[in-house]
Design a protein around this nucleic acid. Structure first.
Lengths: 341, 341
DNA sequence: TACATTTGGTTAATCGATTAAACAAATATA
DNA sequence: TATATTTGTTTAATCGATTAACCAAATGTA
């Protein structure tokens, strides 16, 4: 009972014309008569014809598929970026294939293999936390396949990149906390090998120094920034002889963990310790107290990433200049750091 | 500078053997000498050979790709299901392609087209809220492609299905609320045309009747169950002459909206109004008060869905019995409904 | 009328990997 | 020695759609 799929040949046989004619009719070729075109369309519909993508992609050397790699899908930032990538690409005849690395380097490599294997026309990716070795990304480029990175990118890799200004974001945050009267600001950051986290850390350090605040080593912690990491690091900060009066966390998820710990210890927020997250995940507006955070303009990032891809495949002229687009971030001040309201 | 991709032919030319020999060597065919095999592997590595999936899939009529359609990716339930599907399928040589319908029927249809177009070997899907017309899913079956539905499925459609017992879950919840002394229980549900929401509603109604509680029409509301919907419906419930003393919301996201409204109105939870969600999203353990909810066993659902797919493609014998697996749900009692603690 | 152009197709090669069938050489068997 | 089997490989067809090259008939042009 396994129905065989209809092919161009089936249609050709029924109409007693060549498969070439059918193929051209489908594409609206001007050398095919309207009568034939209509007949082809009618029969195609009757037989529920669906073009075999494998065959046409093989022949044309173009799949019209774009691969997207994200560290996680259950983050609003990434799913929002994906949505806007999809919107732009769909309009231009491309479909996207989403894969997620789950923050694992090994998984990321296997994702890249899957996508290359599927003969995607390009890859738009944000790197896993774990990723240090970039040779797998080089592999993409060495195949001549367009690669665009966003958010978690790398300076070293010579590819197009879309992100926000992480360094400046840290300045915004530190300055805001200082304006609230805070004097001992800690930072729960990501690992430095990831460019964005390194930039946030550099921004934090430079801002702290600029305003002559204490920059004790114990106030700067690195982690994977999961909610659990946020809990751990916050506990660590509370255990200090001289704990901070404000904590800037480089991810909303980790900030959530930190928030829980503060509440469990009955520490008043923001009076006793102010808290700032990063990413403007929806839950930051929902927790009590609402969480101050940074809006990363996910829609814009997705849109730009997709457009950059289209630029790359459209213009074949070799002297394409590298695109590094850095968006300005926006500080959203909420209750967790707003003393003066 | 666009590097041409290496093909079997390139390797064959270098070694002065036929492409057939190379192909067989790659597959470890016993009729190819070890010497040739080693030579092929060496050259393949040197040239950074990557098999052309389009070609082999076209020839073999099998892509080893499985499509997954979820309503949203930024829900922990769905991303967790995806992860466990992936785990099982990867082990068996399949890769998955994730698409999301964003709860839109139109998008869902286009996803199905994309996946069929990509020649996936099977589709595992959870339907969009909007979906009423099932003809598009019939299309999958009519192509002879295995289809497995999970969570949001349909009884009418004659396909394999994995889900939890929604009807019983409603009973668990209502009984728990009654045990807390609640007497006027409202339900913010999904639309009835979706089977799971219909089952939750039926369960709610039957349980209410069973214990002789008031079953006013105004206490039963249907919506899309977004956070915003939750807010709206909660406001509606509060505006009643005789508001409920407990609200059972068929989704954690909508429950979150309801929670916000209750807090904004300084209504004490659970004393004044108890609140129960559905899905055990991570944030339910993070909000204040923590939210009572239903654990849907996402890992198990994903695992079973993947295994069902493997069963379907493995055994070609026609008399495959239909698999409908219904898991028992678990009530997780937290602060939002726990008066007696 | 004679030649050029347009119209509406057809033929055959091609994309890259796979595989059934064929085949020559080496080895085993009787 | 004669025949059968095994080993290692090649030849050629195939998956389905696309497309360059070709061709015959119809129409246009001088």
């Amino acid at each position: 009972m396994a129905k065989k799929k209809t092919t161009l040949k089936d249609i050709a046989n029924i109409l007693n014309i060549s498969t070439a004619a059918v193929s051209k009719a489908m594409q609206g070729n001007s050398r095919i008569s309207d009568r034939t075109k209509q007949a082809v369309k009618r029969v195609a519909k009757e037989l529920n014809y669906q073009p075999n993508h494998l065959a046409s992609a093989l022949r044309k050397g173009k799949s019209n598929l774009v691969g997207v790699i994200v560290p996680r899908t259950n983050s609003n930032f990434f799913s929002s970026v994906i949505q806007s990538i999809e919107e732009v690409l769909n309009k231009n005849g491309y479909q996207i294939i989403i894969t997620h690395s789950n923050e694992s380097y090994k998984k990321e490599c296997s994702n890249i293999d899957t996508l290359l294997f599927t003969q995607v026309d390009g890859i738009i990716a944000s790197m896993a936390n774990e990723t240090v070795d970039l040779s797998y990304f080089e592999k993409i480029k060495s195949k001549g396949i367009p690669l665009i990175l966003f958010d978690r990118g790398e300076n070293d890799l010579n590819v197009d990149y879309i992100g926000i200004n992480d360094y400046d974001s840290s300045h915004l945050i530190v300055e805001h906390l200082i304006a609230q009267g805070k004097k001992r600001i800690a930072h729960i950051g990501g690992y430095r090998h990831t460019r964005i986290f390194n930039n946030r850390i550099r921004g934090y350090i430079d801002a702290i120094k600029k305003y002559n605040l204490p920059s004790d080593k114990e106030l700067l912690l690195e982690s994977n920034l999961t909610t659990e990491d946020g809990r751990e690091k916050m506990i660590q900060l509370l255990a200090l002889k001289n704990p901070p009066d404000a904590v800037y966390v480089a991810s909303d998820y980790a900030a959530l963990g930190a928030l829980q710990v503060l509440q469990e210890n009955n520490i008043s927020i923001p009076e006793n310790i102010a808290l700032v997250g990063f990413g403007n995940e929806p839950f930051t507006a929902m927790v009590t107290p609402t969480l101050t955070t940074i809006n990363q303009h996910s829609d814009e990032i997705g849109k730009l990433a997709a457009e950059t891809f289209l630029d790359l495949v459209e213009k074949t002229d070799l002297k394409q200049s590298l695109n590094k687009k850095i968006l300005k971030a926006e500080l959203i001040i909420r209750d967790s750091s707003n003393i003066l309201k």
